[in-house]
């Protein structure tokens, strides 16, 4: 046995990935196929499916109701991604300009929110934002700054705020990594060649940190598009994003096939987004090599 293993490095490699491979097969690939197949079946009365082929679930996806929800989810995800970059990039830049000791401290601070459950943190926002009893509105009204409560809750603003808050650290990390890798002498070289601060940023810092920005965007965009906890809590209980529609199909409407069809469509869209990302980075790498 040992002899065979020693002589056959390929077999050895296969044995090494077997546990991980088996795990992925049973708990990831198989369920994925179940979801896709369920999308083509008819619904059972109390959940579950009837083994009868139909494409109707997928055509229903394009019903105006669901489709507009989907477009709104897309809009919220794009907005969230944009704000995460807008806030996260300067933060990442600031962090890389600190001495190493402070940097580690800042990284730690960035990670601290993850020590608390996401659900609890989202409820914390609820107590801040609620229209009549939220801390912000109550304080502002008691101080006499505003007469009517501000619409901070139960709308897109609250959802985007909650999502930006949740995913900001994830956006910062890859941007921080790519800015940290950036050779400072390139900045000095640009300066030396008469570039002003703005020109250095546009011509050198931004293009060289772009892979980090793209990676950060992906890491925020994908979970934001499928989010359902944040809209469920901060969206004021109405089902506001496609993630909520999907969870409702399984938990409330007992329409598993339609939920599966929606999920499958989401996966396809995210797959495209990811492919686009890989293509853009692969293209860059190729350009640099070519």
């Amino acid at each position: 046995m040992e002899q065979t293993l020693r002589r056959n490095p390929a077999l050895r490699a296969w044995l090494l990935i077997a546990p991980a491979g088996l795990f992925l097969l049973i708990f990831f690939i198989l369920p994925l196929f179940i979801v896709i197949i369920y999308g083509f079946l008819e619904r059972g009365t109390y959940g579950g499916v009837v083994w009868q082929f139909t494409a109707e679930n997928f055509s229903r996806v394009f019903d105006s109701l669901y489709f507009s929800t989907f477009l709104r989810s897309l809009y919220i995800a794009v907005l969230t991604t944009l704000f995460c970059i807008l806030v996260g990039y300067p933060l990442a830049y600031f962090m890389t300009s600190r001495p190493p000791r402070q940097r580690n401290l800042l990284l730690l601070l960035l990670m601290i929110p993850f020590w608390t459950n996401f659900l609890i943190r989202t409820y914390a926002w609820l107590t801040l934002l609620r229209t009549n009893t939220g801390l912000i509105n109550v304080t502002l009204m008691n101080l006499g700054i505003i007469k009517e409560p501000l619409p901070l809750f139960g709308n897109d603003f609250a959802i985007v705020l909650g999502l930006v808050y949740g995913w900001l650290p994830v956006a910062v990390l890859p941007m921080y990594a790519s800015l940290d890798r950036l050779d400072r002498s390139l900045v000095e070289a640009a300066r030396d060649l008469y570039a002003s601060g703005g020109q250095v940023f546009r011509r050198v810092i931004w293009p060289l940190s772009l892979p980090g920005v793209v990676a950060g965007s992906m890491l925020v965009f994908i979970p934001s598009l499928g989010a359902f906890v944040t809209p469920a809590i901060l969206g004021g209980g109405k089902s506001l994003m496609i993630g909520n529609v999907i969870s409702n199909q399984f938990l409330a409407a007992h329409d598993w096939p339609f939920g599966s069809a929606l999920s499958t469509l989401m996966m396809v869209i995210m797959l495209f987004a990811t492919l686009l990302y890989f293509r853009s980075t692969a293209l860059k790498a190729k350009e640099e090599r070519a």
């Binding site: 050779d183 002498s185 390139l186 000095e188 070289a189 640009a190 300066r191 030396d192 060649l193 008469y194 570039a195 002003s196 011509r203 050198v204 060289l208 640099e288």
Partner: peptide, 17 residues
């Protein structure tokens, strides 16, 4: 630096990749 009439050749060249 960007207003001085000098230019620098850096040790590791610092070419824009």
């Amino acid at each position: 630096a960007h207003r001085r009439p000098v230019n620098t050749v850096f040790q590791h060249y610092a070419l824009f990749p």
